[in-house]
Design a protein around this nucleic acid. Sequence first.
DNA 1: CAATAAGCTGCGGGTTTACGCAAGACGGCG
DNA 2: CGCCGTCTTGCGTAAACCCGCAGCTTATTG
Lengths: 240, 240
Amino acid sequence: MKVLIVEDDPLHRSYLHEAVNAALPECDTVIEAENGTAGEKLARDHKSAHIVMDLQMANRNGIEAARTIWKERPETRILFWSNYSDEAYVRGVSRIVPDGAAYGYVLKSASDERLKLALRSIFIESQCVIDREVRGLQQKSLGQTNGFTDSEYEILVDIALGLTDRAIAKRRGLSLRSVQNRLQQLYDKLDVYQTAGDDHEDGRFNLRARAVTVALLRKLLNYSALERAEAELQEWLDGK
Amino acid sequence: MKVLIVEDDPLHRSYLHEAVNAALPECDTVIEAENGTAGEKLARDHKSAHIVMDLQMANRNGIEAARTIWKERPETRILFWSNYSDEAYVRGVSRIVPDGAAYGYVLKSASDERLKLALRSIFIESQCVIDREVRGLQQKSLGQTNGFTDSEYEILVDIALGLTDRAIAKRRGLSLRSVQNRLQQLYDKLDVYQTAGDDHEDGRFNLRARAVTVALLRKLLNYSALERAEAELQEWLDGK
DNA sequence: CAATAAGCTGCGGGTTTACGCAAGACGGCG
DNA sequence: CGCCGTCTTGCGTAAACCCGCAGCTTATTG
């Protein structure tokens, strides 16, 4: 068995290396990549079936890399190993995992033991292992209770990118008014109407901008999500 | 000599611990904190004069911690050790360093050698050591060439927080029109006027929202800067 | 000191947002 | 089938935003 490690940080990389060796005696080769681009290449060259992947890398983040890898070989098993459990990441990952694929999401703060267990479960038993904390988010986000609909999330991203209502309407194939309706839902859920100081005249926020900030502060959005969204936007713009 | 290490990640923490031991034989005690809050407390209790501090920690980030520490004892020497050289961090740090204080900014990607040198220079020789890459940013940012004025940066933050023009005017003691002037400068510098697809009717951005996103993508802003700004905003709101 | 530069401010108007109101459209469900 | 909730769309309005124009106040400089 061969395992590919894709991880930015040299310290974490060597820690992972050791953890893999310890947890998987049946693994004879470990290869390492230090960013997403290199990771994709190695995965392709080695036809890797077992990957441990960091999210949040400078060059090309884990979600992007995983997406292209899974596109080429959907049965690849990937364990995401991340510092954070931002809803943006969780949503980003579950957006790209192919049907029936085995994958995992473990936080870097997890114990050695838990990491080892996850490695065995995913790579040997083909089971999905999702960190408890992450799992919570996932449910909240997918079950719409208290969470955001996909359409709401979509608009959130669109205004975060700085599109006008009209542009959003065009992009999503809606009328102007519908876009504005969704915006209102969004403002509602994000609770952006706080009086901002005193209730009276000067206390209001710019809802549009405020919504984005609140979403960022709540980790509904993060840098990597913006980055991806921006790339998609450019693609769409080029496509016409 | 005593050294305090404030760092989230256990791996990095122990790496730092070793590095300190290796670089500073004259150091007899090393204490560790795993977040900003604990760091502040330890610094106070031990009257620490030598600190290595991570930026970007979950509980309370390095800039906040450093600020209160320096407020209590401005002659403290602090070495910031960070993953990133975002302009937002650089600006945040140089905003809080007291006159004449010795401090350093070294990236985690730096070699062991460089880290050791920095430790000795700052803690023993009381010199400032700024990573080359960071230094570049600093100059660009402070020398206004191609960089942003403080007042422009201020407005950027204000719209990022979601304030209305009027609210900004009140907060900064300006007229509405002046605020809008600054906004225009900002839009100009951020180059937000890109036609977004086709030049004609539907292709425009919402400048306000777009400016924030562009700033984020360019690392002029980042999560931690937003977090701090939001805290300050709340303070101001409470203060009236 | 005059002159040029840079920033603040009011005025005015064109555009975009936020949103109430109300009329369809679609999909269950008893 | 008729009722109901959710989603979409158009119309209309008040507010906010973007910005050109022009008069004023401070610095900076030769």
